[in-house]
Design a protein around this nucleic acid. Structure first.
Lengths: 208, 208, 208, 208
DNA sequence: TATGAATGAGTATTCATTCAT
DNA sequence: TATGAATGAATACTCATTCAT
């Protein structure tokens, strides 16, 4: 598939500062537009309007709509992981690390509701040209990460017996679902939901 | 349960057999198209091509794209509930009824993978003109149904103490998430995932 | 050009009673639709809906939209003339006959506002395939009729000297204009406007 | 006098020269098309063909068909008034000013036959969404203007007694009617018709 | 680098008309 | 006679993209 950055403006050596700024500005505007009007109604015209630039600037800096939206997702993902990683690493027990994983993830997205909404829309809609789903890899990585913690917890006799990958998948989907129900209706009290969710999962995995 | 049918071909008294057949054919084709190419790329042209008819036939039978897609969702929802209801009612204990709810839901959608994919896409994308999410009601109803069962289980001393609505929401999202992970990748063994999920929830709600 | 009736249902000998009734019903419905939504938005679908029949009945009885709308005009024209003729003939002086012409015309259309509106719309819009205006003949006949009266009045020394055809044209346009200003805004007091108009023309043609 | 321009191409600061030229070109082409094939058959496709551009250029420069056609009317109206105003103001007597009004109006539109035809078609057909007539205001303004002159003439004892607004309405309709009879059939000698009309009105209002 | 202008493919929808029943 | 169903052409309009400046 195309390289990690995909598209480059013609006749370029390496990304100038102004170039990077423009790209970031456009990606940010794109996220806002997606969150506001939804994936299907997101167009270059709307993104350009939101960013206060002309449509053709977008075509100049990016290879296409897909590239921009992919960046919306991956940048948020990366920043999210930066927030989560140290908090997970600080915990010693498996249950503690799972709790840290979920808690810090909820924490991070709580502070980035609009971007989370955009990310959900994009992940739900982005497909390859063959109709296959993109982002399976990102999700799989997350599932793997949690599965590993769970397996370790079982080896240590800390957690009860269950299929670690199956449960990890369930946990990932749970957290995402709770976040979505909050993102779609900000009336929801996410802190309280988080507490319920952590308790729910504690019992589910038999953390003692 | 489904709302008014909305549109009728001109000069009609009541739906003829042949018209009902056409409508069903179109709705079915629409579901397949959505599942294949995604909500954003679903168009009258593609639906017509899939159904082997001309574009204008669709406009003749339906008031608009929204009406067709809404029918994809509501018909599947209704048929799903018809499958689930007796299986839930047959159980006496709260844990049994929750298990029946989840199990029969997984069972039903396992037999309707394409339609489930389409339904997910549509529910994720359909919005009101103001950008608000449609289908919140359908989800809320499901959450309410499960919450009620959980609350009863707590009153009977069968289940441990927790916030019934919060947990019900988590359960709904869990099941949906597991279904989605299977629908997007049919390599997943749904029966095995179902067992893991039921066990997971059993422990989470403290069913004894 | 096509014969006076234009289109006939296939395999026909002479118009049955029921056939004539259907045609009249359709023409009437067409007039109402044109008056309501305007020429440009008048369609078989709307006419059929108004008449409570199916679209294809219209195609069965008429050769096309043009034929129906032509009938709306000519039928109203004919009925109008039936009303006006005896009233004009009853007058002896030229000024009296002009006054009778105008007065009875205003009178007639006052009782048929909707049809008059439709007629105006149709006459303003109907064109031949070459873009030429239809209904020039009908208007020319009216101008001729009034011009003849005016010329007679001049020969009798009853009216002052002027170009009879030019003035006749002006009069026809005047009356039509006043009717239109009333038809478009029913708040106008047509009786009062009629008095002003008759007085206006009396002075203009020097009736003594 | 003309209202807000309504639509602007995206990402624009102020109208460039080339854009103004394109807009004018399109408005001109639209007028020709309306005059040729009539309001009902005027489409973006025909306008684009006439202007030698692609359909989407029109959508780029204008918000919709209504906006273009409204401009056809208002631009001609404005230019017409620019021509008429000084000629009216130059006259001292009421009869003189009415004669100047009518004469200069005929003069102006004689030099713009195609645009006048287009304007008539558009004013006759353009309606609000509720079916109400647009352009009532423009006509009303014209009637008001003439009515005021007539009333002044009466106060000065220059004109005979009659209802000024009623007569003003008749005059406006008269002039429009005569122009239409000429525009639809260029064989008519408008100069001669103008003379007849001015004489007709002189007598009608009792100018001494 | 940036953009105003342009474009052709694509969108849903309406239209008058046809035809088997 | 009448009609429900179907159709292909036409409608206004949006889209991502290109290109000269």
């Amino acid at each position: 598939m195309s390289g990690p950055e995909g598209h480059e403006p013609p006749g370029r050596k390496r990304p100038s500062f102004i170039e990077q700024a423009r790209r970031a500005q456009i990606v940010e505007a794109a996220a806002e537009v997606v969150a506001e009007v939804g994936y299907a109604h997101t167009s270059f015209a709307r993104i350009a309007e939101k960013a206060g630039i002309s449509k053709s600037v977008i075509s100049y800096h990016f290879g296409g709509k897909d590239e921009i939206l992919r960046l919306v997702v991956t940048r948020l993902f990366d920043r999210g992981w930066q927030h989560m990683e140290p908090r997970i690493a600080a915990e010693k027990t498996a249950a503690g690390r799972v709790r840290a994983w979920i808690g810090s993830q909820l924490e991070f997205f709580q502070a980035h509701r609009v971007e989370f909404l955009a990310m959900s829309e994009i992940m739900a809609n982005h497909r390859g040209e063959d109709g296959s789903y993109a982002y399976s890899d990102e999700l799989a990585e997350e599932v793997d990460g949690i599965a590993e913690i769970l397996a370790q917890g079982q080896r240590d006799g800390e957690l009860r017996s269950f299929d670690p990958r199956g449960v990890a998948n369930i946990i990932v989907r749970c957290v995402d679902g709770v976040l979505e129900s909050w993102a779609m209706d900000p009336g929801v009290d996410l802190d309280q939901q988080a507490a319920v969710l952590l308790d729910f999962i504690d019992h589910a995995i038999g953390a003692r």
